[in-house]
Design a protein around this nucleic acid. Structure first.
Length: 644
RNA sequence: GCCAACGUAGCUCAACCGGCAGAGCGGCUCAUUCGUAAUGAGCAGGUUAUGGGUUCAAGUCCCAUCGUUGGCUCCA
C-alpha cells in the first residue's frame, strides 16, 4: 500500500507505508539527511525515524529552523537522566519530568537523601559527553497503558507510574537509548550523537508537580544550542545580565540599598535613587494630569473593618500586615482600591461626572514569603502608580482603549518593546457569566483595535474580573510584567457604588483598575538593567559633572555649575586634588551623561570641554550651545544625546 | 514556607589539617596642581551575621536563629 507525501515545494512523492522521514530525506540528498534533526508531519513534530503510515504533509526540520531546539534539547534531557542513572545507580534514581524549556532543558530526580553538589555537575557533564560519543540510536515505541505501568513499576519509577495512570490515551510512548528507557511524548533527535553543544547550569530543589505538599525533587538545569557560537553567546548573555543586575548596580551607583537585618524586602532609596524615582513619578504625574486623572492620597493604615468589607480579609489576609492600637485592629494597605472607594463614595456621582478617574502614588505593603524576595523586582513594600476608572458600561470599551494608549505613551521614552496578555474567566470566578463575557469582549476589542501583539491565557484572570497584563522586553530579551488593566466586578458591589443616570435612577458603575509602571520600584529595577545604569539624561541622578583640572579652575567650575543649576540641571563639581584622569574615570564609571572639563583654555574663553560617557570628546564648546541642546534633550525625554 | 549554596573591613576577596584575622579598592591625612579611564606616601577601619555548644585553642567543627543567592509545572 502506497502513501502520498507532500513536500514543502508542493511536490508529492509516493512511498510504501512505513517509510520514515529520514528515508525520504536521503532520497532527496545525503547532505540534507545529514542536516535534518527532525520532521514536522501535518504540523506535528515528528521523529526522523518514526514511520509514516498515511498520506501527509512532510517538512524536514534543519538545525536553523525554530523547531530544531525542541528535538535536541529534549534528547539532552534524556542524556542527562541517563548520565545521572549511570553515576548514581539505576535503582537509586527515580525520574520526575524532563521537559524542554526556553534556551535549554531540565530534569527532576529523586535520589533519596543524597544531594547533588556543584561538583557533581561537572561529573555528570563528563558522563553526558561519553553518552554522546557512544552515539546511541534513540528508538520510539508504544505500549498499552497496562503494560506501560508494568514496565515502570518494574523499574521502580513511581513518578512515571503516576503520570501514565493519568494519561488520556490508551497507549504510552517510550523512548529508548542504549540501556535507558523513558516515558516521553517526544519527539527526539535520532541518536545521542546528533546533539552537540550544551552546558549544565545549576541544581535546585523543585516540588513534584510544583506542589509544595509533594516530595521535593532535585532539578538540574542545562542549556543547549545547535551552534557553538549560539551557546557561547547565551553564556555571555548570562554574564552580561549579571553585570547589569540592578542589585549590584543599584548600590554601586549609590541609588539604593537594602538593610537585610532591619528591613528585609524593603528598598532604601539613597539621594541619587530618589532623584530617579521622583523623575519617574513626575513624568507619570504629567501624563495623568494631561489625560483627565485626578490625583488623590489615601491612608497607609486603615481599620480592619474596611478590609472585611473589601474582601481582602477573605482573599488576601495571608499577605497583609496588621497593627493593634487602642484595642482597635488596623491593617497596612496591600492595595489602594478600598481607599479609592471611600473617595468615590464621599459624593453623589452623576453620570455627567463619568468617567471618573482617580489616581494615586499608593505605597502598599504585602507580606511575601522570604524565598521569593528578589531585589526591587519582588519586595514587601512598594509604590504603585495606581488608578481606578469609574465609567458606564457604554464607556467601558473606549476607556480600556485609552488606557492601552496610555501604556504606550508611558513606555515610549524608555524604548521598550512589550506585548500583552489577556487573561479570561477562571474557575473560581465571582459575579455572573454575562458580565464576564461582556467585559472580556471589551478587553479583546480594545486590544484588537490597538494593533498590539497579544496572547490569551484562558482561565488565568483574577476571581473578580478579567485582565490584560503587559510584559516589557528588556535589552537582554528578558520579559517583566509591569502594566495591568483589570476589570473589577466585586468592589462596586461590595461598596455599593452607584451613579445617578439621566433618568434619576441609581446605577452601578463599571470599575477599571489599572497601573502602568505597575510597581515603580520594579520599574526602576528594570530600567537600571535596561540601561545598564546609563540612564537617559532626563533620568540621570547627576546630569553633568564639572571637572576642574587644577585648583585655580575651581572658581570657574563653580560659576559654570551655578549657571547650569539655575537652568534646572543636576550638576556636581569635582574640584578635588586628584589627577584629571582619575576624576574622569570616576565620572565615567558613575555613567554620568556629560563631563564638563574646565582648565586654562576654557576659563579664558568662557567655554567648557564636553566629554560624553560614550567617550566622544566634543572639545571646547560655548556654554550656551551646550545648554540649549541638553535642555531640549531633557525636555523631550530623549533616549539619545543630541551630541551623538 | 521548602531544597541547596553562602554570610570575614563600606566593596571585592584571602586566611592549608582547628593554632597571632590579611590584601586590593574605597575613606581620611599629607605631599603633588595634573588636559580626557586610576599621582605617591601614610593613617583609620573587624565582637568573622546572631545566639549557643565541642575544644587547651573556633572565621574554620556541631546545633539553632536571622539574612542573602539560585530554584520550587515553561506540565510525559
Amino acid at each position: 500500500m502506497g502513501i502520498k507525501v507532500q513536500l514543502p515545494d508542493n511536490s508529492v512523492v509516493e512511498h510504501p507505508a512505513g517509510i520514515r522521514p529520514i528515508d525520504i530525506a536521503e532520497e532527496i540528498s545525503k547532505a540534507l539527511a545529514k542536516r535534518a534533526i527532525g520532521a514536522k508531519v501535518d504540523g506535528k513534530l515528528w521523529d526522523l525515524t518514526r514511520p509514516l503510515d498515511s498520506n501527509c504533509e512532510l517538512r524536514l526540520i534543519l538545525e536553523k529552523d525554530p523547531e530544531a531546539p525542541h528535538f535536541f534539547r529534549h534528547t539532552f534531557s534524556h542524556i542527562l537522566a541517563q548520565a545521572v542513572k549511570r553515576l548514581f545507580g539505576d535503582s537509586k534514581v527515580k525520574l520526575g519530568i524532563g521537559p524542554v524549556i526556553e534556551n535549554g532543558f531540565y530534569y527532576d530526580f529523586d535520589i533519596g537523601s543524597t544531594r547533588f553538589s556543584e561538583d557533581d555537575l561537572a561529573r555528570i557533564e563528563e558522563k553526558m559527553r561519553k553518552i554522546i560519543e557512544e552515539d546511541l540510536p534513540v528508538e520510539r515505541f508504544e505500549l498499552p497503558r497496562e503494560e506501560a505501568v508494568e514496565l515502570m513499576k518494574e523499574k521502580g519509577e513511581d513518578y512515571k507510574v503516576e503520570l501514565i495512570q493519568e494519561l488520556e490515551s490508551d497507549t504510552a510512548t517510550f523512548y529508548k537509548q542504549g540501556d535507558f528507557v523513558d516515558l516521553c511524548r517526544g519527539p527526539h533527535a535520532s541518536s545521542t550523537g546528533a546533539v552537540k553543544y550544551f552546558k549544565l547550569i545549576s541544581v535546585s530543589g523543585a516540588y513534584w508537580r510544583g506542589d509544595e505538599r509533594n516530595a521535593m525533587l532535585q532539578r538540574i538545569y542545562g542549556t543547549a544550542f545547535s551552534k557553538k557560537a549560539e551557546l557561547e553567546e547565551h553564556l555571555k548573555m548570562i554574564e552580561e545580565a549579571k553585570k547589569r543586575d540592578h542589585r549590584k548596580l543599584g548600590p554601586q551607583l549609590g541609588l539604593f540599598g537594602f538593610s537585610s537585618a532591619y528591613a528585609p524586602g524593603m528598598a532604601i532609596y539613597h539621594p541619587k535613587g530618589t532623584v530617579v524615582l521622583n523623575e519617574l513619578m513626575r513624568f507619570a504625574r504629567e501624563l495623568h494630569q494631561a489625560h483627565g486623572y485626578e490625583e488623590i492620597d489615601t491612608p497607609l493604615v486603615m481599620n480592619e473593618a474596611l478590609w472585611h468589607k473589601s474582601g481582602h480579609w477573605d482573599h488576601y489576609r495571608e499577605n497583609m500586615y496588621f497593627i493593634e492600637k487602642d484595642e482597635q485592629k488596623y491593617a497596612i494597605k496591600p492595595m489602594n482600591c478600598p481607599g479609592h472607594m471611600l473617595v468615590y463614595k464621599a459624593d453623589t456621582v452623576s453620570y455627567r461626572d463619568l468617567p471618573l478617574k482617580l489616581f494615586e502614588f499608593g505605597r502598599v505593603h504585602r507580606y511575601e514569603r522570604s524565598g521569593v524576595l528578589h531585589g526591587l523586582f519582588r519586595v514587601r513594600g512598594f509604590i504603585q502608580d495606581d488608578a481606578h476608572v469609574f465609567c458606564t458600561r457604554d464607556q467601558m470599551e473606549a476607556e480600556i482603549e485609552k488606557v492601552i494608549e496610555f501604556v504606550s505613551l508611558t513606555y515610549e521614552p524608555f524604548g521598550f518593546n512589550y506585548r500583552a496578555e489577556l487573561s479570561t474567566r477562571p474557575e473560581n470566578f465571582m459575579g455572573n457569566i454575562e458580565s464576564w463575557e461582556l467585559a472580556t469582549q471589551a478587553l479583546k476589542n480594545a486590544l484588537d483595535s490597538s494593533g498590539l501583539e497579544y496572547r490569551v491565557n484562558e482561565g488565568d484572570g483574577a476571581f473578580y474580573g478579567p485582565k490584560i497584563d503587559f510584559h516589557i522586553k528588556d535589552s537582554l530579551g528578558r520579559e517583566w510584567q509591569c502594566a495591568t488593566i483589570q476589570l473589577d466586578f466585586l468592589m462596586p458591589v461590595r461598596f455599593e457604588l452607584t451613579y445617578i443616570d439621566p433618568d434619576n435612577r441609581e446605577v452601578q458603575p463599571v470599575m477599571i483598575h489599572r497601573a502602568i509602571y505597575g510597581s515603580i520600584d520594579r520599574f526602576f529595577g528594570i530600567i537600571v538593567e535596561h540601561f545598564g545604569g546609563a540612564f537617559p539624561t532626563w533620568l540621570a541622578p547627576v546630569q553633568a559633572k564639572i571637572i576642574a583640572i587644577a585648583d585655580r579652575h575651581a572658581d570657574y567650575a563653580w560659576s559654570v555649575a551655578s549657571i547650569l543649576k539655575k537652568k534646572g540641571l543636576r550638576v556636581e563639581v569635582d574640584d578635588r586634588q586628584r589627577s584629571t584622569n582619575y576624576k574622569i574615570r570616576e565620572a565615567q564609571m558613575n555613567k554620568i551623561p556629560y563631563m564638563l572639563i574646565v582648565g586654562d583654555m576654557e576659563q579664558s574663553s568662557g567655554t567648557i570641554a564636553v566629554r560624553l560617557r560614550s567617550e566622544t570628546d566634543l572639545g571646547s564648546t560655548p556654554l550656551e550651545e551646550f545648554l540649549d541642546n541638553v535642555l531640549s534633550e531633557i525636555r523631550n525625554r530623549s533616549l539619545e544625546s543630541p551630541f551623538e
